[in-house]
Computed example of a mutant assay.
Amino acid sequence: MRIISSAEIAAALSYPALVDALADAFRSDVTVPLRHHHPIPQAAGVPEAMLLLMPAWTPPGDGAFVGTKLVSVYPGNGAKGLPSIYGSYVLCNGETGAPLAILDGTMLTVWRTACASALASRYLSRPDASHMVMVGAGALAPHLIRAHAAIRPIRHVTLWNRSREKANALAEGLGRTVPGVSIAVAGDLQAAVEEADIVTCATISSSPIVSGDWLKPGAHLDLVGGYTPAMREADDAAVTRASLFVDTRTGGLKEAGDIVDPIRRGLIGEADVKADLFDLTRGIHPGRGSAEEITLFKSVGTALEDLAAAMLVWRSLPV
């Protein structure tokens, strides 16, 4: 069994190739059971931990795969100077069940998450989109910028983060790795969003950061960070003003606060979600309908994306 490091994953993948691999996966018959959530009690005064299991497998036959992502979430790790989330991905032969590799789950996740947003952008953003606003400066941010730039002619990126110091650090790093794209740090988020063709949010905010009133006609809003029903990155105006899309209906209608909360309060209904990535990639829904349409894509992630990324890594590595 092979151990595949984060560096090997980064060397094996490219954003265009992974976007295409994700599109193929959403068009295929990959089986994706419900995500398993298992609470793990901790000592008194320490937040409860969680074990997440995300399995998926391809149809039987030659070249079949089975994969499972194992994620441990320990919120109390911050007090110990440790990351709160660890992840590993186990890839197995789909014909025999024999383990093939263990991949760095954190690196795999940021790549597949960013490329899922880029895949949605292929259908939902304007083809001439050139100005992107990145809200958040965490580990996902540089991948989201590079992935969107692989799909659309992005020429200018404006960064915004609650900590301007982190935004400045991200800008400095991106300036060396994203050629042909100007990078700026915004002090006024509203002014930046009002000029943006694509607005991407990757935060852990529990209250809205971006207002729908700021979005110009034709804008595309990409919401990545919120992963529970209690989290919001965009306000009600964004949700009611935009055409709504999700990565999967299963996840988007149960786990995405930006969708679940407005439904619960009667502002929108489930039918207002026009399509998911299955519908878009299979041509069931065409995506953006006009140059002036405002679109919103909410991603919560799916094991299908992890499996597609792991398969691409495995097939790209030298024998």
Rank of each mutant, 00 (worst) to 15 (best):
Y86F: 15
H38E: 15
A137K: 04
D272F: 07
E233I: 10
G81W: 05
C92Q: 09
P286T: 02
N168T: 15
V199A: 12
V135L: 08
V273E: 07
S28D: 15
L317N: 11
E195A: 15
A186C: 05
A17Q: 12
L53I: 10
A309W: 14
P217T: 11
Y123R: 00
K69C: 03
A237E: 13
P55K: 10
G94T: 04
E8L: 12
A23W: 00
T58C: 06
A167H: 02
L119H: 01
S299C: 10
A310E: 03
R27P: 02
G187I: 12
R146G: 03
A149T: 10
R288K: 11
L189G: 03
I259D: 02
E165V: 14
A219W: 07
N93Y: 11
A11T: 13
W57S: 13
C201F: 01
P83A: 05
A167V: 11
S211Y: 06
A12S: 09
R126G: 10
R35P: 04
T203E: 12
P33A: 09
L312Q: 12
E48G: 10
L304N: 05
R264D: 14
K69M: 03
A186N: 08
V224H: 01
R265M: 14
S14D: 12
R155W: 04
C92T: 07
P60H: 07
K254P: 02
S243K: 09
T295I: 02
N168L: 15
L144H: 10
L100H: 14
I151F: 00
R122E: 06
E255H: 10
T58K: 04
D247L: 01
V46R: 12
S125L: 11
M107P: 06
W111G: 07
T200Q: 05
A230Q: 13
L244W: 00
P39A: 06
D235Q: 07
I198W: 01
G257K: 01
R288D: 01
A308L: 02
L53D: 02
T113I: 10
L189F: 09
P41Q: 08
L280F: 04
G289T: 11
L18W: 01
L221P: 08
L253R: 04
S207M: 14
S206I: 15
N77I: 09
V239N: 00
A114E: 07
V300C: 06
G252F: 01
V224E: 01
L296I: 08
R265Y: 13
L119N: 01
D222T: 01
P83V: 04
S117R: 04
A271R: 14
V210R: 05
I151H: 02
V193I: 08
S205Q: 10
V71K: 01
G136A: 09
P47Q: 08
R288V: 00
L53F: 03
L304P: 05
P39F: 03
I284H: 11
E194V: 04
A7H: 13
R155G: 15
G67T: 11
L119A: 01
E305A: 13
H143T: 04
G138Y: 03
V273Y: 00
R264N: 15
A256T: 02
F297R: 00
V246D: 00
S117I: 04
E270D: 13
L189P: 02
P99Y: 07
P16F: 08
G78S: 13
F26G: 02
L296F: 10
T302N: 12
A25P: 08
L174S: 04
G289A: 12
A202K: 03
N93R: 13
E8A: 14
A196D: 04
D197F: 12
L34Y: 13
K69W: 08
